[in-house]
Amino acid sequence: MRKDFKLATTSYPELTNAISTQVGQLRKNIPNTMKGFSAMAQGATSDGSLDEKTKELVAMGIAIALRCDGCIGFHTKSLIRLGASRQEFEELLGVAIYMGGGPSLMYAAQALDAWEQFGGLRK
């Protein structure tokens, strides 16, 4: 991809920041629901037989399959934080494309855009 070409108009850092702001409001307004969701997220992503990075790779594949822009942003950010390589990320995108066909290809391209926007290394 040319470095001067932007695939999408979505700014994933801006999108995740905006969602985080609204989630903060939900934490205040529906605290029991949000505590339950947070507990579920912690239980699902904590190390077990699979490590946290592997679980985030699975979550990213699901985010692409379900076409969730916010999920793509948050899971991309987490994968970069967890030290995923671009090669691991691209292999995940390949599996997501295989499982989801053309629509997943479109969202895989957007996920690659999110990777670059969050500072993931280019080839």
Rank of each mutant, 00 (worst) to 15 (best):
S46D: 14
T54D: 06
D4H: 12
Q110M: 11
K3F: 13
A44S: 12
V23F: 09
Q25P: 01
I30T: 15
S46L: 07
D113F: 04
K35Q: 15
D47L: 00
R2P: 11
M1I: 10
E52R: 10
G120R: 04
Q117K: 09
I30H: 07
V95S: 01
A65T: 03
G94N: 07
M99P: 03
P13M: 06
S38W: 02
T9G: 12
E14S: 13
F37W: 11
G120D: 11
F37V: 13
Q117P: 05
M1W: 09
T16N: 04
N29Q: 14
G83D: 09
F74V: 12
I72C: 04
A108Y: 01
A96F: 01
G43L: 03
V95F: 05
L66Q: 15
S49M: 14
A109I: 12
G70Y: 08
D4V: 13
D47E: 15
R67Y: 04
R86P: 00
F37S: 09
K6F: 15
A63V: 05
I72A: 01
A8G: 14
R2M: 14
L92E: 09
E56P: 03
L26P: 00
P103T: 07
S104H: 02
D4C: 09
S20V: 08
R27L: 13
A39I: 08
D4Y: 08
S104K: 02
Y12E: 09
K28P: 04
A65C: 02
K6S: 15
K3T: 13
F5Q: 08
T21P: 02
S38D: 15
K53P: 10
S104N: 13
G36A: 12
P13I: 05
M1Q: 13
Y98K: 11
D113H: 09
C68S: 06
S85A: 00
T54E: 08
L66A: 13
F37N: 05
F74P: 00
K77P: 01
A108Q: 02
A114Q: 04
V58W: 05
K28E: 15
K28I: 14
N29H: 10
S20T: 15
A96I: 00
V95E: 06
N29C: 09
C71G: 01
G36E: 03
A8S: 15
E88V: 08
M106H: 08
E56S: 10
A114D: 01
Q42N: 11
L92R: 00
L112K: 09
K55A: 00
F37Y: 14
E52T: 15
M34C: 10
P103Y: 08
C71S: 07
F37P: 00
D47Y: 00
A59L: 06
I97L: 00
I19G: 05
N17T: 14
T9M: 13
S20D: 10
M99Q: 11
R122V: 12
L82W: 04
T33Q: 14
Q87Y: 11
P13D: 05
M99K: 03
E52K: 14
A63K: 00
K35Y: 03
A41H: 13
A84Y: 06
L57D: 03
G70S: 14
A39L: 15
N29S: 12
L66R: 15
R2Y: 11
I30A: 12
V95A: 01
Y98M: 11
L57E: 02
A84F: 06
S38L: 10
K35G: 05
G73D: 03
K35L: 13
G119V: 07
S38F: 00
I30L: 03
I80D: 04
A84I: 08
V58C: 10
Q42H: 06
P13W: 02
G83W: 00
V23H: 11
